[in-house]
Design a protein around this nucleic acid. Structure first.
Lengths: 169, 169
DNA sequence: GTAGATTACGTGACATGTCAAGCATAAGCC
DNA sequence: GGCTTATGCTTGACATGTCACGTAATCTAC
């Protein structure tokens, strides 16, 4: 087990070589991509990445409306975070909040007309960024293995993680 | 092009099918994994994921010390964020701050003895989490394609992103 | 050397996220 | 029904992150 340099001995109980490679790559992409997405959305659409996550989740849902709990599970947030955030978004007119008919404890977060317009206006620019920064670096033939690997991780996260799974997988 | 349901028409100018699959998987993993890592570090080591990112970057560096700018570039943060955060970490004794000899504008962030101990104590638990949640979902044979794909994305991010690249690739 | 840019940070005001606690409704149980 | 527990969410205090701006050291070209 030849070591080149003695100095930056990484860490105790670390990952094996293949895992380390994958993990390092994942983390580096993760950190920068979050930054870039935030920046682009802020600059082009006066919207944070958090806003975007909420709007897209709502936009993708059948009724454009979800309870706080369901929405939080969908996007992997804590409920209290969503509660605060939804209120701020409501004050900007992007969503509407109303107590649910079926269960009066529950609050429905609904995509407002204005929110939908905002989402649709922001989408092309954001998609363009993703195509450029993310898919610009991946050869076609790796798309399928990448998806398969990440789907495996996601399933594993749902099974062993501490957040409740979203209703619809 | 048969569509099952007319309702949740995703978004204008969206990605093609393969891309959409990869992106969705990536985003879902990203959101939950961040949450889980934060939670585990907080629970087991009284440390946030942000603290962890700083400590590992310092720990991996030759001298256990970097300027604010270099460190920020390394972990993909804005400098002002690191400035605030480093000060807080310094007040907890995890790092030490000192103006650099070579350039007295620059501030060196140095891993303290206490910081190194904390890092080494936190590492096993965090690594265990990553092995369980991340690598538990990936078959061995997909590790290499996954790494290759992510490394491609990272290179692309450095080339086309808005953050300066770290000194050492 | 010195005026004007550039670079490296720090700071303060404010936006956002987290945690612990609380309140109201619903569901179980006798 | 009434009691206990569980669920769904909100809130307030506080930790953290961002943005715009300020300050100081350094560099560049006279």
């Amino acid at each position: 087990m030849p070591r080149k340099r003695p100095a930056p001995e990484p860490l105790t109980g670390w990952l094996d070589e293949e895992q380390q490679r994958a993990w390092l790559a994942y983390i580096k992409v993760q950190l920068r991509l979050v930054y870039e997405m935030n920046r682009q959305l802020q600059a082009d659409s006066r919207m944070s990445l958090a806003d975007w996550d909420v709007l897209t989740a709502l936009g993708a849902s059948e009724s454009a409306s979800m309870t706080v709990t369901a929405l939080a599970a969908q996007i992997g947030w804590e409920r209290s975070r969503l509660s605060h955030h939804a209120k701020r978004m409501a004050s900007r007119g992007l969503v509407e909040l109303a107590t649910a008919d079926s269960d009066r404890r529950a609050t429905e977060v609904r995509l407002s007309a204005e929110g939908r317009v905002t989402l649709e206006q922001a989408a092309p620019g954001h998609v363009e960024l993703i195509k450029r920064l993310f898919f610009g670096g991946i050869p076609r033939e790796l798309l399928d293995p990448l998806s398969t690997a990440l789907e495996g991780v996601y399933a594993n996260l749902l099974a062993h993680g501490s957040l409740p799974p979203p209703d619809s997988l």
